[in-house]
Amino acid sequence: MSETTHTAATTRASGPGRLLVAVYALFAVAATGRSTVQILTRFEEAPLAYSLSALAAAVYIAATVALARSGHTSRRVALAACTFELVGVVAVGLFTLLVPEAFPDDTVWSLFGIGYGFVPLVLPVLGLLWLGRSHPRTPDAASSAPPSHRG
């Protein structure tokens, strides 16, 4: 836990990042709730769709926690989670568009997240942009003096 790691992390999880984490938290709750109900009450109706919902929920939780937390590991986890979401929403979006019968019931990612106002499609993009903007710190950059930091 060096000083620089801490500064890098606070800039990432504060300001606009905080709004992003809030939106992610909401999606984590929504996806977890939905998939829990689906799996507990009617798993056999659409096992693939409901398993996918659960997976999406887990990834949203991971992304929320990783975006909110400090440190390099969290940053990597957040990157992986956002990338996974983007791939997931595009893949499932295409799949539900082309082979609708494979998904008898909707998931968060069905038709590119149309049921959630396409937020599932926008969210990972914003997440990746934010992670990119809150600059990755290479070991070199961390050892040198940090550029002007304002409170």
Partner: peptide, 20 residues
């Protein structure tokens, strides 16, 4: 949850979370 967020983030992004 919004209140907690607003207390943690003492900037304009606090109300932004509430607005969202």
């Amino acid at each position: 949850a919004c209140a907690v967020w607003g207390l943690m983030e003492r900037s304009k992004w606090g109300p932004a979370v509430i607005a969202f």
